[in-house]
Design a protein around this nucleic acid. Structure first.
Length: 818
RNA sequence: GCGACCGUGGCGGAAUGGCAGACGCGCCUGGCUUAGGACCAGGUGGGGAAACCCGUGGGGGUUCGAGUCCCUCCGGUCGCACCA
């Protein structure tokens, strides 16, 4: 006790010492070519913002790091890389705001992030750090584009974008505020059709969906797979042709409800539908053109926002309902989207809410074709009745009276037989537009030649460097910033040598992040994106932890890219992330941390005051990792006090010379219980309960005045994932020579997790009335007999008949009397 | 609107259908101190002197037994959202 002063726990000193040692000794850099038990522990890499990492990021990274360290203690060769997702519109906009070039800003931010990530004690293999903005990286992002292009998975088509007439540039959806440009609040944003590059992700829709249910390929959080299922949006239905009246053409629609065919009383086409011009009668032409102009003037966000008042106009043309033979009017309306289905619908106002609203507004006929069994087939339609269960068809010719679900199949079969339609599967998923009309991204490696068309840049010429132009902001000319840089823009065609022009679009940041996990183990290789032997050793990623905000796009795009690479023979696996878990969100004062709310907590000051280990423990203790929690200053002293008590306990061990002293059975049991509990909790990412179990063990040790060296050493090992520097120092005090992470995770003996005597609660009619202490494994009869002796039990059983006796072995005895 | 998740002390949160509130914060009492926002010991869901009674958003159900399962209503969080 006397020299405790000199051995006071000083987190700043301990943490600096071990961070320096880890770096010197390359403690966290596994041998990528020889590791025997590779475990790829990946966390979603950050976008290096100017503000630095906030507590939310630290929470996510720490949780992932804790898991990686746990796996390492279990004997795996853990590879835990980190990098920076530094391209994109955020960086560019921020740079524009400050007037500093992103190429200057980003390295500064990365340096700051690196400092913070080191300071918090992550087990990162710094040798493998990467940034997506590094030409050595984006060279291979461009290579990846070419792989897709040459295999026919990349193509160009016109797509709609938000266009600000004032900035004369393209805006992302989040830059459009209530239909106005975020930088020009008086300027309405329009839609414009531009030639853009797309990837054929829709070709893989079925496989992307099917693999979600294949546990051998992917073990993911349910919330995440569910989000992907919704996004893929598989639906079954039929495509049906409606002949145009007085014309030889037909309009094809997609519907999931062929059972309601007899109720189709009009048709609606998307305003952009190619047949509109041809169908429109002279009398309606002016109105139709005006409406189409009006829709085009809207931005994409306002157009798609739901619950909007329906608008639309009549084209003057009619179609024929193939079932009824009746003439039905053809309208155009912006609630029908060109991107989905066929861009045209059969409107069944009686049984579709949107069609109902439209019919009401424009006075179109509403015909009921479904009614609940036994109800009036002519009951007025007060609202759209969209259910099918318990409904049968009415006013539907030969199918009247048939249950809706059966009629759906039968009518579809009839349509196919008669040549009016085909059974079809549709996905909500659309092709991935990877074009960005911006500066801060990897140039798409294509050269446009007047005679050869788009020609890929030869692999030997990669990377196509992003030219370091000063004026990278979009200007009034409407020309992409890259096109203004003539010596870059004009190049000879690689095929014919004629003067060509470079593609001026850069690629989406989601392409950068769709393959970064492949690059990490190969950052030292510069003649190919990844080495096949290394990739086979480390990939797919063993455990991936990240935010559910990326549940759909990032994770789906990464899966798609892996499938393409697999198909092209570049990788052996089809699914890139074997296990994925989403972490929760840290809130502050009940609100999500955000700059606008001004409640962002910067971790640096907490680490300076409490130390990284205490900070890490606090983050992991404040709530379940997969659910997040509320960050408040008040709780952080708990974990710090805990560490100080453990520190003192280690100090006591150092003074105990007596070996093999008798350890009380209750402590031994507690030790085995704790190892079991902590091990299981770590695997389940239930870090808060793992820490609670360690605290319980410490409390038991203190209460029984026990400082048994082996138990304390086990405790230090179990603590190491949470408080790595602290544990290293304690380990060294115990005589450890290299690192605590070369120790092995403690094991438990199931038989020692229970004491010789057990307390069995006794219930009478389900209410606890007493407790009996019996030897482990006691017979039910003996326990019941002992229970009956208890006064509290007697009080409730006396004079009553024992109707039933329930004994849950080792847990509880319930006496049912009456 | 659709889908998923969640409502437990003063607070963060624990509980394979089996003693509700582990663990921590805070608070209370005492000790040690010139002092305490340090440390140590004890206490801490509500009511009650006690025996006991009540208690996991509200209501109903299944069960010997429900925070946990089912139905329903209320409240909240997160996705998706005119997807035919």
């Amino acid at each position: 006790m006397t020299d405790q002063q000199s051995f006071r726990y000083d987190p700043q000193a301990v943490e600096a010492k071990w961070q320096a040692r880890w770096a010197e000794r390359h403690t966290n850099e596994p041998d990528l070519d020889a590791a025997a038990r590779p475990f790829y522990n990946l966390m979603m890499f950050p976008y290096p913002s100017a503000e630095g990492l906030h507590v939310g990021n630290m929470f996510a990274f720490t949780g992932s790091d804790v898991y990686g360290r746990f796996k390492r203690l279990q004997g795996f060769d853990v590879f835990e890389p980190i990098g920076f997702d530094a391209f994109g519109i955020h960086s560019e906009n921020y740079a524009i705001k400050l007037g500093i070039h992103p190429a200057e800003l980003i390295p500064r931010n990365i340096a700051n992030f690196t400092r913070q990530l080191t300071r918090v004690g992550g087990m990162f293999s710094w040798r493998n750090v990467l940034s997506t903005t590094d030409p050595a990286y984006y060279k291979w992002t461009q290579w990846l584009f070419l792989q897709l292009y040459t295999s026919g998975k990349a193509y160009r088509k016109h797509g709609l974008v938000n266009w600000c007439p004032e900035c004369k540039t393209v805006l992302a959806n989040e830059q459009v505020i209530n239909g106005f440009c975020e930088r020009h609040p008086d300027t309405k944003v329009e839609q414009r059709a531009l030639q853009q590059w797309y990837f054929r992700i829709t070709d893989y829709a079925e496989r992307l969906l099917a693999n979600l249910d294949d546990r051998s390929k992917m073990d993911w959080s349910d919330t995440t797979t569910q989000a992907q299922r919704n996004w893929l949006g598989r639906s079954e239905g039929a495509e049906i042709d409606f002949a145009v009246d007085g014309d030889c053409g037909a309009i094809r629609v997609y519907t999931t409800r062929p059972d309601t065919l007899y109720g189709a009383t009009f048709m609606v086409l998307a305003p952009e539908h190619p047949l509109v011009a041809q169908l429109t009668t002279d009398a309606e032409r002016a109105t139709v053109e005006a409406y189409r102009g009006q829709v085009a003037a809207l931005d994409l966000v306002s157009r798609k926002v739901g619950d909007k008042e329906k608008t639309g106009v009549f084209t003057g043309a009619y179609a024929v309902n193939p079932a009824t033979g009746g003439k039905i009017p053809i309208w155009i309306a912006d609630y029908v989207l060109m991107e989905y289905g066929t861009g045209a619908i059969m409107a069944v106002p009686a049984h579709d809410e949107r069609d109902f609203a439209f019919a009401q507004k424009f006075g179109l006929p509403i015909t009921r074709v479904l009614a609940r069994a036994g109800r009036d087939a002519d009951a007025p339609m007060l609202e759209a009745e969209t259910d099918t269960a318990g409904y049968a068809l009415v006013h539907s010719g030969q199918w009247s009276g048939r249950p809706a679900d059966e009629a759906l199949q039968e009518i579809t079969a009839w349509l196919e037989r008669e040549g009016h339609g085909t059974r079809t599967v549709r996905f909500r998923l659309y092709d991935w537009c990877i074009s960005r009309q911006r500066y801060w991204g990897p140039p798409i490696p294509i050269i446009h030649c007047p005679t050869c068309g788009p020609v890929p840049v030869p692999e030997a010429d990669l990377p196509v460097l992003l030219p370091p132009i000063d004026d990278f902001r979009p200007d009034d000319s409407g020309i992409s910033p890259l096109a203004r840089h003539e010596e870059w823009y004009f190049v000879p065609c690689p095929e014919c040598g004629a003067q060509g022009r470079r593609e001026t679009d850069v690629s989406d940041t989601f392409l950068d992040s769709a393959w970064y996990y492949l690059r990490y183990p190969n950052t030292d290789i510069d003649d190919r994106p990844f080495d096949s032997a290394r990739t086979a050793r480390w990939c797919p990623v063993t455990m991936y932890i990240g935010g559910n905000e990326h549940a759909v796009l990032h994770l789906l795009y990464s899966r798609f890219i892996a499938m393409v690479l697999h198909e092209l023979g570049h990788v052996l696996f089809e699914e890139p992330f074997t296990k994925f878990r989403a972490h929760g969100l840290i809130v502050k004062d009940g609100a999500k941390m955000s700059k606008s709310k001004g409640n962002v907590v910067i971790p640096d000051e907490y680490i300076a005051k409490w130390g990284a280990d205490t900070f890490r423990m606090y983050l992991m203790f404040l709530g379940p990792f997969q659910e997040g929690g509320d960050f408040r200053d008040s709780g952080i002293s708990g974990p710090r006090r805990f560490l100080e008590k453990v520190w003192d306990l280690v100090g006591q061990c150092e003074h105990v010379t007596l070996a093999g002293q008798e350890v009380h059975q209750s402590v031994v049991v507690k030790r085995h219980q704790t190892v079991k509990k902590v091990t299981e909790a770590m695997e389940a990412l239930s870090y808060n309960t793992a820490i609670a179990a360690l605290m319980e063990l410490l409390n038991t040790m203190r209460e029984t005045n026990c400082s048994e060296r082996h138990i304390v050493k086990d405790m230090i090992v179990m603590l190491a994932p949470f408080a790595p520097h602290f544990s290293e120092e304690c380990w060294e005090r115990f005589g450890g020579v290299t690192t605590v992470f070369s120790a092995s995770w403690p094991t438990w003996d199931e038989g020692l997790t229970v004491e010789d005597m057990m307390d069995i609660p006794v219930q009478v009619n389900g209410k606890t009335r007493g407790k009996v202490r019996v030897p482990r494994g006691a017979e039910e009869a003996a326990i019941a007999a002992a229970a009956m002796q208890q006064d509290a039990v007697k009080r409730f059983t006396e004079g009553k008949e024992l109707r039933k006796q329930i004994y849950v072995p080792g847990r509880l005895l319930n006496l049912v009397v009456g």
